[in-house]
Each structure stands twice: as C-alpha cells, then as structure tokens.
Design a protein around this nucleic acid. Structure first.
Lengths: 138, 138
DNA sequence: GATTTAATTTAGAATTATTATAAACTAGAA
DNA sequence: TTCTAGTTTATAATAATTCTAAATTAAATC
C-alpha cells in the first residue's frame, strides 16, 4: 500500500497521469531494492508476462521516454553489439561493467572509481560528466 | 608515391584487393597526421565530394567493416544522440571526449588518464579494457 | 453519477540505420 | 586473353525507433 502510493506520487509529482499502463510499468521498474537495467524489448516482454493483455510497444516507448524526461530513468550511452538502447533505474552519476557476450550491464557506484589523472576539457568547453565503461571478458 | 604504396601494402597485407574504392577510402582515412573520427554517413559524403561518381552506400559499409576486421579501424561503443556508429582511425587503446551538442569526438590517449581506484571484475570475469568517455558541455 | 475535455494508448504506417541479395563488374592468376 | 573468385552496386529486407490519427480514459465539471 505504501509502495503503491509512492508510485502514484512519483507519477503525479512529475505531471504524469497515473494510467494503468504507467502504474504497472512504474511498479515493475521502481519497486526494487537494486538498480535495474533494461531495454525497450526486455521491458515489453516483462510487461507481457506480468499482465494478461500486453501493452502496445509505442506505450512502452512513450512511458520510458516520459520517465526519462521526468528524471526517473537514465539512458546508458553505450552501443553494445545488439544495438539496443539501455535504460537504468539508477539515475545518480555512476559507471558500468559491460559484458559484451551476455549484453549485461552492472552498475559501478561513483565512489568505486577515482582518477589520479584526467585531462582538462578542450578550448571553451567544460566537463559535463565522466562515464567509465569497463568491458568484461571471460 | 610512398603513401600510395603503403596504402596498397596495407590492403594487400590484410588480404583486401586494392580496388579503386578501397584505395580511395583508405587514402582518405589513413593518409592523415591526426587520428580521425567518422560515421558511415559522413564518410559517404566525403567520398562523394572527393570523387565524381559516388560510391554505393553498401560499399562504404563493406569497406569500413573490412577495415575494422583487418584491424585498421576501431568502432567507438558510444551511443550519441544522432544514433550513428562512430569509427576511429586510432586503433590503440584510448579514451574520448564527446560533445553531445556537436556530436564530435576527440581522442584522449591512454596515458592522459590514470586511475587511483578501480573495481575488480565481478565473479568469473576479467577486465577486457576500460573506456572513458568525458562528456562535454559549454 | 453523467458529461466533457484533454491526455494517453493504440495499431499501424513511416523513418532511419544497417544488413542481405543477387546481378554486374573487375583484379589478378593462368 | 580468358577465367574465376572477390567486389561493387542497386535494391530489397530488417530492425529499432518515431510518427500519426483514431479510440480510449483520467479527472475536472456539471
């Protein structure tokens, strides 16, 4: 009951009408202990399993985009071999392990990586943020 | 003449027949002082300018793929906002600045970044390599 | 609770990057 | 010169994503 409420608040406070679809997706994505990585395709499959009537793919796209805009999700700027866009429920500044074999992402919290040396931004630019991807192999 | 020859050698030693198209593309990509970043689209445009008869897009794809397989090009595993695949004539281990506004990449050599702290690979995995992307803003 | 309205969902078409196909062409061997 | 396998090419196919316009629905108003 508490969780359900916080989902509704999360949606409402972001000016997103808590429709059946958004609530279902939000519950699936945000009612978790750990951070969660997914693609549109994997999310669509998960929602199809969870509910009898499956959601339109466009709704998955719309909802994820809306959640991203609202700051509840972040997009991972990684081009894996499967060419799918990854999303992450972890919206804090952080890094990733990436396993190209399994296409799996694992979070690395910001404080697990420290730089001894890093270059300055070129000419008139500033550093917006630093993303580290540690590619894994067997 | 020397340059032309090294291009021919580069192709032949990779078991790539030095066709007109491959030689033209290779000259454009590899006869440079600095490292060069491009997308299929930008390369196609450049080749169209350079030559009267433009190359088939499939040839650009085929050639870039062949050069990549031969180890003359590397693919940048970055998903920018334009959703194009970037290639890099710098095939050594290195890092990048990325300007999301202009979609421009700038190389950072490996020795310009040093880690004070980095996590171990999970479970049975090993670290294949580490890619750092420094996102820029104005 | 019924009515209204604007937001949302939906199916399907459109778009975009990339890959596959199969016919025409060509480098290099014989 | 002839032959053949490797290449190029135009075009079709595929795959992820976005667009569109009609149907549905949340929630405000009566």
């Amino acid at each position: 009951m508490v969780k359900k409420l916080s989902i509704l608040n999360k949606l409402r406070s972001s000016n997103l009408r808590p429709t059946k679809q958004r609530v279902e997706i939000a519950k699936f994505l945000f009612e978790r202990e750990k951070t969660f990585h997914f693609t549109i395709e994997s999310l669509a499959k998960s929602m199809a399993k969870k509910t009898s009537k499956e959601f339109a793919l466009a709704t998955i796209y719309n909802t994820v985009e809306a959640f991203k805009k609202a700051g509840h999700l972040s997009e991972v700027h990684l081009k894996g071999k499967n060419n799918r866009t990854y999303f992450d429920t972890n919206i804090s500044n952080h890094h990733h392990f990436y396993d190209n074999e399994t296409s799996e992402l694992i979070d690395i919290s910001e404080n697990q990586i420290k730089f001894e040396k890093i270059p300055n931004a070129p000419n008139g630019k500033k550093i917006a943020n630093v993303e580290v991807i540690i590619n894994l192999k067997d």
